[in-house]
């Protein structure tokens, strides 16, 4: 089965108290642990111990964790990683609180990826026995969980190759300079292992940078409601609510109190590995990113952490 999903994103913040206010009270994540200067969160509809880790000091992303279904999947990914030329190291159970053993490597884009097979099971906030539709007393936006992340890389094609060969991901959409793949320079790629439209996307830009971490919502009305709450909580909006041409998702980009970009993302069609990859040409990238305005705002390519 391989990779189930992006299980966690670990992000740096300059001020932990302000960050907690944002992620717990505005986004409505549930704090599950605070230890050694780090805070761990999960969304209400997530069952594993955490999907977001905040660490005080600096900005940007520390690492990502990807969850596989079975311990054997770790060995397979380790071998594929080595075959690809990655330096893969083993990590022990407990190196990350409540996370199993696994592997760790640095990607060609200089991001740190971890792969693990288990996290302490906490359960969703509605449980599994005759559950209600949602928790009655959600806080703020009440995001149900982590959705995906967009990272920057100097060489997008190599990242796509790595994610394909090592993780078994496939590209659902891509921005490329030529519709013939062999002749094309890849500007951006959206990748997944299952029906989720993307788990990770890679855009051409400086190495090791974070563009955004996204949280799930259901539909337009929830995205609009989130926007209202951002106004009430003085959250800086980057853009939205609008739609992405790419993925067809509905979105707001906004910033956390340290300047890391966040997104609330809803919709997006069902992905299948046998569905032909959607290709966007660079002259239409603005429509692909912001479907309504059809202009890239000046922050999209220049602001990252």
């Amino acid at each position: 089965m391989g990779i189930l999903r992006m299980g966690y994103a670990h992000v740096r913040v300059t001020d932990l108290a302000e960050a907690k206010q944002h992620y717990a009270n505005t986004l409505g994540l549930y704090e599950t642990l605070e230890q050694d200067g780090k805070v761990y969160y999960k969304g209400w509809d997530e069952w594993d111990h955490h999907s977001l880790v905040l660490e005080e000091g600096g900005v940007g992303v520390v690492k990502y964790g990807f969850k596989v279904e079975k311990p054997e999947d770790i060995d397979e990914i380790e071998q594929k990683g080595k075959a690809f030329g990655l330096t893969v190291e083993r990590m022990s159970k407990g190196e990350n609180p409540e996370v199993s053993d696994g592997i760790r490597f640095t990607t060609p884009s200089d991001h740190v990826f971890e792969v693990y097979h288990e996290q302490t099971l906490i359960g969703t906030e509605v449980g599994t026995h005759n559950p209600e539709a949602f928790p009655r007393h959600l806080v703020g936006v009440g995001v149900p969980g982590l959705d995906h992340s967009l990272i920057l890389a100097e060489d997008v094609r190599t990242m796509e190759n790595m994610l394909t060969e090592v993780f078994g991901f496939y590209a659902t959409e891509r921005v490329q300079t030529d519709l013939v793949d062999d002749d094309a320079h890849y500007i951006a790629t959206w990748m997944t292992s299952n029906n989720q439209i993307h788990q990770i996307a890679v855009l051409e830009g400086p190495q090791s940078k974070l563009h955004h971490v996204a949280f799930k919502l259901q539909d337009w009305s929830e995205v609009g409601h989130a926007g209202d709450l951002f106004a009430m909580d003085d959250v800086p909006i980057d853009i939205g609510p609008t739609r992405h041409g790419i993925t067809r998702g509905q979105t707001i980009y906004f910033f956390d109190p340290s300047g890391n970009r966040n997104e609330v993302f809803a919709g997006g069609y069902l992905a299948y590995p046998d569905r032909p990859t959607v290709k966007w040409t660079p002259d239409q990238i603005a429509k692909g990113i912001f479907y309504h305005a059809r202009e890239i705002n000046e922050r999209f390519t220049t602001v990252s952490t």
Partner: peptide, 12 residues
């Protein structure tokens, strides 16, 4: 003028 995150993270 050119501004980004308005929260000290993006440097622009």
């Amino acid at each position: 003028y050119t501004i980004g995150c308005r929260r000290g993270g993006c440097a622009i």
